[in-house]
Amino acid sequence: MLVVMALGANAIHPRGEPLDMLVQREYIRAAARSVASVAKQHQVVLTHSNGPQVGLLSLVNEGNEDVGSSLLGVLGAQTHSMLGFMLEQELRNEMPGRKVCTITTQTIVDSDDPAFKKPSQMVGSAYTFEEAQAVQSANPFWQLQQDGNYFRRVVASPSPREILELPSLRHIVSSGDITVICGGGGGIPVRRDCEGKLHGIEAVIDQDRATQVLAEGLEADALILLTETEAITTNAGQPDSRMIRECTPQALEALTFADISMTPKVESLCHFVRAGGKFGAIGALDSVQDILAGRSGTFVKVDVSDGITYYD
C-alpha cells in the first residue's frame, strides 16, 4: 500500500519546546521511529511542517545586518534540507539497509490567487509597536498585522496547484521500495510568468493542502495527517464532546470546528477520498500503527454506515 503521511508542526516539535537542535533531534528521532514502523510494511511518502524552523531562521537573519532578510522560499529550502537530513538519517538508523531519499519540492501557485490580496498567514518574529515601526521602515513591502499586544508579518497562503517534481516522484515511487521525504512546509512556493519561466514568490503553502495534491498526484492508497491529537472531536472541550471513529466526507463537512487549523485538514482529507483514495485519516504520531489497524484516529471514507461513527 502506498501511504502519504504528513507530520504536523506539533507532531515533530510540540508547543513550548525550545528550538535547540539537540531537542529537535530527539523529536525527529521519535517521529522517525513511528514512521519506520509503517515504512517497514508499506511504501511511505513523507511530508513535514517547517513553521517553527522558518521562524527561527527568519529571526536569525533579521538580527544580522550583514545577511538581512531572506526570501521565504530560500528559508523554506533551507529548513526542508535541514529537517529532511535529520529525518532521513534517523529513518536509515531505524531501517538499516532500506532505501530512503530526500527531495526538495517546489509548489506551483497562481499569481492571481485571491490570497495575495488578503495576506493572512503570520510568519517570523513578534514585534512591539516600536519594533514594528522600525521593521516596516526597513521593509516597506512587508505587511504587518497586530497579534494581541504584538505585531507580526503576514504573507499570502495561496492554494497549491501543482507539485513541480511530481513526475520525478512518480518515477521514484514506482520502484516500490523507497521511502521518500518531500514537500517540506508545503513545498517552496513558485509561479510561472507569461513565458513559462519559474520565479520564487513570497508566500506560505498550507502543508495539508499541498500534501493532498501530492497524494492525489501519486495515486496513493491512503493519506494520513499526523498531529498531536488522537482524533477529530465534536464540540471540543465541552461535556458532550465525542471522538469520531469513521465518517463520510459529507458528514465531516457538516460539522464546525473551533480550531481554525482543522479546516484545511478536513478539506484535504475529504478531497483526497472523493478523488479516489481508499481512506484519509488523522491522528497522533505515536499511534500511527493503531491508526492503520483502525484502533485509533479518525477515518474518512466514502462508505460509512450512518455517515458517522464514534469511539465509545
Rank of each mutant, 00 (worst) to 15 (best):
G16V: 15
Y310A: 05
C247M: 06
R192I: 09
S159I: 04
G8Y: 03
A132S: 13
G73I: 03
L164M: 14
P119R: 00
L223R: 01
R161H: 05
S37E: 11
Q145F: 14
F257N: 02
M1N: 14
R98M: 14
V38G: 01
N10Q: 15
A258M: 13
T107V: 12
R170M: 09
L166C: 03
G8E: 02
T105W: 01
D66F: 07
V109N: 10
Q136P: 05
E219I: 04
Q24L: 13
S120C: 11
N235H: 15
F279C: 05
G294P: 12
I108L: 14
W142K: 11
S58I: 10
A215M: 09
R15F: 07
Q53I: 02
S34M: 00
L87W: 06
G237N: 12
V44I: 04
T179M: 02
T263C: 15
Q89H: 13
A281L: 09
L198E: 06
R92Y: 07
S137G: 11
L218F: 06
S168W: 08
T248Y: 02
T107F: 04
G200E: 05
G183H: 00
V109I: 11
I201N: 02
D286G: 01
H13Q: 13
H48L: 05
E130D: 12
V109E: 14
N10I: 00
R245N: 10
I103L: 12
A6N: 06
P158V: 07
A77I: 00
P114S: 10
V35H: 00
T179D: 01
E17W: 14
Y310S: 05
D193E: 11
G187K: 03
